[in-house]
Every structure is written in C-alpha cells, then in structure tokens.
Design a protein around this nucleic acid. Structure first.
Length: 779
DNA sequence: CAGTGAGCGAGCTTCCGCTTGACTT
C-alpha cells in the first residue's frame, strides 16, 4: 500500500509522473473540475453573500468515490493541479469534497513534467491559496449570474432557448460588427502601373525586370495620359539602395497560435486541431495542448540546442526566451512542443504526422538564429515626367530559422515572392518592353475565420485555451453564426497596355468577395446582438472581461473581498435585467420594405417561428397573411424590396409536360424542378424565376439518363448489393453504406463473392452522424 | 428535404472553465 497519493488534473500526466515517483506514491487524476454550480438551478444564493451551491458533476460521482477511498488509505495527499486560478480551485474542491485533513494535505505545483521538477516540487509543498480560490469562485459566479440572468431575457424578448454570456456574446458581436463594416464598405478603384523592362543577366541572356510606379492614378484618363508620356520617355536607373534586414522566428506554439497556423498551413478547423493534438498528447508525443504560455523548459531548450547543432551547425542556434504578453495569460503549462525534440517525425495518421511536424518545426525554429536578408530598391526615373518606378528584390544572405519554418499570415497571398535581381548599374538606360495600367479595387475588411476569431478573442483577453473551440461551436449551435459559402460577385475592370508604341484598352472580369468557411452572422445573431447592445452595453464592451479580470487579480492578491466585488457588480447589473424584462419591446428584426404595387399590401421582413421570412399583408388586414422564407445568404438587414417580392414568385408552375405538372421552387438544397413526385436540382447557372419549361424538361431527361448509367451491376442473390457509378467513380453500395473499389479491378467483372470480400476487408466507412469518434487503436 | 409562420400559453431552455469518457445487443 502506498503511503502517498498525488492527484493531478489529467490522466496522461498521472501516467508519466507515476514513473518518476517510487512505489510509495500512487498517482490519480481528477479529470479537471470535480464539482460545479448546480446545473439546473441558479446555483448561487444571492441573498446570503453570493454563496455558491456546488454539486459533484454526475459523471464524476464514481471518480470522486474512488479518490475518496484512495485518499483515506494514505498518509499524505499531494494536490498537484495546475498553478493557476482554476487549478487552485480544483485543489480546494478536492480537499473539501474528500474532507482532507490539513495536516495530511500538501499543495504542490510544477512547471514541467520531469523527474527533477517533480522531486523539487515535493520538497517545497505549500498550503492552498484561498485568495486565489476566491478569485476563481468570483469568476465562476459572475459568469453564472451574467449567463443565467441574460439568457432568460432573450427567451422572453427574442426567442426561446437562446443564450448570452460574457464570452460568447462578445464573440458574436465581433462577427456582427465586421459584417456590417463589410456591408457598408464602398470600394474605390485606382490604376496600378507596372512596367516590364528587358535587361541582360550575368550570362548576357535577356531577362525581365518588373517595376511598379510609386503613384496610382484615380482616373482612367490620367493613367492613359501617363502611358502616352511613357511612349516617348527614356527610362534610367537613378538609384540603387541596398538595405540589410533581419527576420526573427515566432515564439513556440500556444493553443491559439497552433490553431491559427494549423488552419492556415494545414486547413484544419479549430476543433479538428484540438482533437489531433489531444491524440498526440495522450500518446506522449507533445506537451499539453491547452496553454497560453510561450515558455520552454530548460530541458527543452537544451534538447533544441543539441538538435540544431547536429542538424545545421552552431551558427544556426540562438538562445531565446519569449515573453508571454497575452492579456489574462496564466501560464500553468509550457508552450506546446514535442516531448522529445530528437524525434523529427512520428507514426500515426497523416493528420497527426502533419500537426506533429508543424509543432516540431515551430519549436526548433524558435531557438534558431535570425535570418539575414538584403533588400534592394531600384528607382527608375523618366526624362519627361517626375514619376518614379520602383523595382525591388530580396535575397537571403543567411537563412537561419527559415531553413526550418516560416510563419504564415492571414493576408491573401497576392504578394509574390521577391525576385532575384539581375546585375544593374546607376545611370543604366533600360529597354522598356511593356507598361500596363490595371484598375484595382480597395479591399473590404476580411471576415473572421475560426482561427482569426480565436486570435482576436485572445488579444482581448476573452476566453481561455480550453474554451476557444467550444465557444466557436456554441455560437454556431445557437445559430448566431454560420460558416460562409459565398460565391462572390463578378466585376469588370479595365487594363491599359502600352506595347510597341500602341495603347490597347481591354475590359476584363474578375470574381471578388467569394468567401468559404468564414464566420457569418445570421439574422438571429444580429437581432440578439443589437438587443444586448441596446440594454447591456457594458457586458458586451470589449473591455468588460479585462476589467473584471483586474478585480479577480485583486481578489487573488488579497486586496479585495470577493463577495464585495460581486455585490458591487450585481447591484448595477440586476436592476437592468429587471427593467429590461419589464419595459423592453419584443425584437424580431422587423423591417417594413414598402407596399406591394399589385395588391396594395405591406411588405415586411422579420424572424418567424422557423427563421427569417418576408410577410405580405398586415396583422390588421382582413385577408390572410402570406409568407415566404428568405433565401440562403439573404439578410433581413440588407434584403431589398424587389428581392423580397421575388420570393413570392416561387414555387411556380411551368405548365404541363406529358400530362403532369412541372413546378420550380427553392428548397433547402437550392433550386429544384418537381415533376411526378421526384425532384431535380437546377444548376447554378439556371434562374428558377426565368427557366423555361423546355429547359426544365431537358434537366429531367438528363438526370434520368444519368441514373440509367448509374447502375453498373446488381445481383440476384442480394438486392441490397449494387455496383454503382458515383461522383468519384464506381463504388459498391450495400445496405446504405458505400465501399471503395480498388483501382486495379474492373467493376463490371466483380462477382458477388468478390464484392463481399471488399466489404469485409475495408474498415467501416466514415459515419455521417455526429457521434463522437471511437478511438481505433485496435484493428 | 422540398414547406411550415399569429392565436391559448404548459414546461423547457441558459453561463465559463477544467478534463476525458464511451450505455447495449
């Protein structure tokens, strides 16, 4: 029987630590918090000093009794939860729930999971810091009060089951405000002038030198006049300036930066990244993945140095310690890094390998030397104009950390890599081959991606590493926000080209404003946001969290009483809740757009029971009201009168074909033709408002023809089994599941037995349902 | 999945932060 029980938060950590400590120590895990405010009640006794009413979480009951049993049989219990506000509270809850006697309880903390660090921690135990615990209780209770008082206001005034909270409501606000900026954005165009010169390289071969005019022209006439001047001009190099510059590596990953880089470089969603990282952590391949610290342990620093020395040489190594500057950071853990830096790659799924490689590179690069660059600016002048062209080039003199890793940015990558420049001299006369003036448009602000939203929240100090991914899914679950799939629009722009003394004018088209997978506010999100902004602006204030965090810090330092802090907040907040409940109007986002010229009835939009609708008529009218749903992508806020009226034109009949009626409409999956009980999707190029009966019939016949070719083979033995032709080639369909056919086999020649074999041997196809994935360690 | 929407007004919903688990046949 062990004499000591160590309790940590995570089972993976427990497993590692157990190895460092002898048989005298048993190590168990609390799996995070073991109790919380009661879930279905308010959970806070406001009248009695904001007394929290805690309950052991239902899924923790069994665990708690195991911990109790274990703690009763040992001499000493070591509470080794993380060294931050939440960790201290976990330790306190444990000591309360397990009824630990003070004399047999020790509180310890360690910053890295190494034997010396843990032994060191055991040498220096302390008591539970009750001030820090109280700061956590204040945080918890404040969040409960805000969430559980605001949400019911929304149920009453907007729609049932909605929610509001200190974090989620600000996240929605960011997205709503960005969308309004975009809707209100007016782009302006100007003419960007680029010249191509032909010069000789070292081997006397002609190469192109590209230079951009340092000035853009607002009007086409001005650009045209300038090109006219260029016809007769001589172009001379006036100046060559070389400037050395340096680039430094980014700090090692935190949760937020890992989510951003994995999104940019690997295309993973925030929750995907976290799931993969969790797997790597459980397999002992990386350190803990929920952290706000950029710090590396001495052990890791030493390993990185050794690795860089052997891989690239001494010159590539540079010792660096990064400072965590994030607001509200608590630094209970290290940065995210590989456990063993000498492991360049790992076994696992492709995703695990990619994420591991990313973490490895980032960690190693963070301990490497600066890259040394040299930037060259070449000014090119004209003899009949004061305008200057500028050609730039950049060369890497010493690659340093770039040998391993380069951080990505969110900006669209229309910036080409800087080219190498041919040898050039001041006063050199240049041979102009072509000059173009291209109309370019100013860009609207970008919509938030998941990862960009995380970055913004972190910058504002709102939310924690463990909540970024859940917050994003909450605001989508509440239908405040959805992922975009915007086609964008087409616009024309003008290009003037001067070549061989002639100026040619062309109109070209480009698609702009397309956005996929970005966060878009829904109508309900906008209505809720506006309501909260009107009545609870201080909660939605971007600085609200930062301000209360200051108070929590004061509580943690023993400077402020936690109950007093809550009282002063509640005394201002609660009366507003009461007042808003009593006096505010119900919100539906209603807008009256005008009067229908045909019927003389009012046309208005609002949120109905099943979502946004356009309504024809008024409640007080005698006639029945008419309704139509808004199309995907239309917003209550921006829909026009004409667009709203168009919605009443569908579904419409196209007349009869072979005695049966053709009807076009728009459903959940887009425009369709309905005929004889079957649905046929309209391609995006067809407008349901204008499609002809002939075109619809053509669609139906095409679909029927495709369906005929779909079936490659069926079997008498088994009606459930078919070989079909799909979008991605031939496949086997069996009891609503699909199976790949190996490329080497001819699908038409497969026998029944061969099909069954394929079904047997292939692992279960990906499920469509949202049930959580089972780990597939065995198989 | 392919069309519903008010009106009576039951009884339900909800927060943030810490951590992984996995009913049965």
């Amino acid at each position: 029987m062990s004499k000591n029980l160590v309790i940590v938060e995570s089972p993976a950590k427990a497993k590692t630590i157990e190895k460092f400590l002898g048989s005298e120590y048993a190590v168990l895990s609390s799996f995070g918090h073991i109790r919380d405010l009661s879930e279905h009640a308010f959970g806070v006794d406001i009248e009695h000093g904001f007394n929290p009413i805690y309950e052991i979480s239902p899924d923790k009951k069994k665990l708690v009794s195991e911990l109790k049993k274990a703690s009763d049989t040992v001499d000493t219990v070591w509470l080794a939860s993380d060294e931050d506000r939440e960790g201290e509270a976990i330790a306190w809850h444990l000591s309360e729930v397990l009824k630990l006697k003070r004399e047999k309880t020790r509180r310890i903390v360690f910053h890295e999971i190494t034997k010396p660090a843990i032994l060191q921690a055991i040498e220096h135990p302390r008591e539970i810091d009750i001030d820090l615990v109280n700061a956590q209780q204040a945080r918890r209770i404040l969040d409960r009060i805000v969430g559980f008082e605001l949400s019911p206001v929304l149920w009453r005034k907007v729609k049932s089951s909605l929610s509001a909270g200190r974090v989620q409501s600000v996240a929605v606000r960011l997205i709503v405000e960005r969308e309004r900026e975009i809707q209100g954005f007016v782009s302006e165009s100007s003419y960007r002038v680029v010249a191509l010169f032909t010069v000789m390289d070292e081997d006397e071969n002609p190469v192109e030198l590209k230079a951009e005019l340092q000035h853009r022209f607002a009007k086409k006439e001005d650009a045209y006049a300038f090109l006219e001047a260029c016809k007769a001009s001589k172009f001379t190099i006036e100046d060559i300036v070389k400037k050395p510059s340096k680039r430094s590596p980014a700090p090692p990953f935190t949760t937020s930066t890992l989510q951003q880089e994995a999104a940019r470089k690997l295309g993973y969603s925030v929750s995907q990244t976290m799931m993969i990282a969790q797997k790597l952590y459980e397999a002992g391949q990386i350190t803990y993945m929920r952290t706000d610290s950029v710090n590396l342990s001495d052990l890791a620093l030493g390993a990185a140095k050794a690795e860089i020395f052997s891989m690239a040489g001494e010159r590539y190594w540079q010792f660096r310690r990064f400072q965590t500057r994030t607001k509200g950071a608590q630094e209970a853990h290290e940065a995210i890094r590989p456990t063993y830096l000498n492991k360049h790659e790992i076994n696992g799924t492709a995703q695990e390998k990619n994420l591991y490689a990313l973490i490895w590179k980032r960690t190693i690069a963070s301990q490497m030397s600066d890259a040394e660059l040299e930037r060259t600016n070449i000014t090119i002048g004209m003899n009949n104009s004061s305008e200057k062209f500028l050609a730039t080039g950049e060369i890497i003199k010493f690659d340093g950390f770039l040998k391993v890793y380069m951080e990505s940015t969110d900006e669209d990558s229309d910036q080409e890599a800087e080219p190498l420049l041919p040898p050039l001299k001041v006063a050199q006369l240049l041979n102009m081959s072509q000059i173009t003036a291209t109309e370019r448009f100013t860009q609207r602000p970008p919509r938030y991606s998941e990862a960009a939203l995380v970055r913004k929240l972190e910058e504002l100090g709102i939310g924690r590493p463990s909540t970024y991914a859940p917050t994003i899914s909450t605001i989508q679950k509440r239908n405040y926000v959805e992922k975009s799939n915007l086609e964008g629009e087409v616009r024309t722009f003008t290009v003037l080209t001067l070549k061989e003394e002639k100026i040619k004018e062309e109109n070209k088209t480009e698609r702009y404003g397309a956005d996929k997978g970005k966060l878009l506010p829904t109508d309900i999100g906008m209505v809720v946001n506006d309501f909260l902004m009107d009545y609870f602006p201080n909660i939605l204030d971007y600085n609200f969290t930062a301000n209360v965090e200051k108070e929590f810090d004061d509580i943690a330092e023993g400077q402020l009483d936690w109950q007093e802090a809550l009282k002063s907040f509640y005394e201002k907040f609660h009366p507003k809740v009461i007042e808003t409940m009593a006096n505010s109007e119900r919100r539906s986002g209603e807008r009256v757009l005008g009067i229908d010229p045909k019927t003389g009835k009012q046309v208005s939009v609002r949120i109905g029971r099943f979502g946004p609708i356009v309504q024809l008529g008024n409640k007080d009218d005698d006639d029945k009201l008419q309704f139509a749903s808004l199309k995907k992508g239309q917003l209550l806020e921006t829909i026009t009168f004409e667009e709203a009226l168009d919605l009443f034109k569908l579904p419409r009949s196209l007349g009869k074909w072979q005695d049966k009626e053709l009807v076009v409409g728009i459903g959940r999956f887009g425009a369709y033709v309905r005929y004889d009980g079957a649905f046929y999707s309209l391609p995006k190029t067809e407008d349901p408002l204008s499609i002809s009966a002939d075109a619809a019939v053509e669609l139906i016949e095409a679909k029927r023809e495709a369906d005929k070719n779909k079936l490659i083979k069926s079997f008498e033995q088994d009606a459930d089994l078919q070989i079909l032709n799909g979008r991605f080639g031939p496949y086997i369909s069996y009891k609503k599941q699909n199976f790949k056919i190996p490329k080497t086999t001819n699908p038409a020649e497969l026998t029944y037995e061969a099909c069954l074999e394929i079904i047997q041997s292939s692992s279960k196809p990906a499920k469509k349902s949202m049930t959580k994935k089972k780990s597939t360690k065995k198989g």
